[in-house]
Simulated scan of single mutants.
Amino acid sequence: MIRGVRGATTVPENFEQEILSATEQLMKEMIAQNKIEPDNVASVFISVTDDIDAAFPAKAIRSLEGWTFVPVMCMREIPVKDSLTHCIRIMVHVNTYQHQKDIQHVYLEEATCLRPDLKHDDDK
């Protein structure tokens, strides 16, 4: 079964190093919480808000060991009025035997406001 693993984070400024560091931190957390192996990943979609254009977040993922050949694509998020700014969102399409309810979606920094309904008991 292919499942989607979601994650999001924010950066304080539109600087290359901040974008790459935040993306790497988010992706590593998604990998750890869901025990994701690159060979089980079909693709990764990354979206950014309009105020992020100093770097391609995909660069951070491709630099992770074993992730060089995983298809990664960056795109713009829909610019909804009054939505969260400086936001990087990731969707990993992974082959897994986990049930949908057991997937650990990861929200860091200011992005925790996006899905408060997904808080886990150990996040309290």
Rank of each mutant, 00 (worst) to 15 (best):
L84Y: 05
K81Y: 13
I36C: 04
I31S: 00
S43Y: 06
G4M: 14
P57K: 01
C87S: 15
P79W: 13
V92T: 11
T96F: 05
H120S: 12
V106K: 01
A32H: 05
Y97Q: 13
M75C: 09
V80T: 14
R6A: 09
N95V: 09
T10Q: 11
L26V: 01
C74E: 13
K101N: 11
I31C: 03
K124G: 09
V5R: 03
V94M: 05
E18T: 07
H86M: 14
I52P: 03
P79L: 10
C74L: 15
A111L: 10
I36T: 01
E18K: 15
M1A: 10
E109H: 07
S63L: 08
V94C: 03
A54G: 04
Q17K: 10
C87M: 15
E110V: 09
D50F: 14
Q98A: 07
P71F: 05
V94Y: 03
Q33L: 08
L84I: 12
P12W: 03
L118W: 14
L26A: 02
L118T: 12
E77Q: 15
F15Y: 13
N95P: 03
A60Y: 00
M27F: 14
L84P: 07
D102G: 02
G4C: 12
W67G: 09
E65F: 14
R89E: 14
E110K: 13
A111P: 04
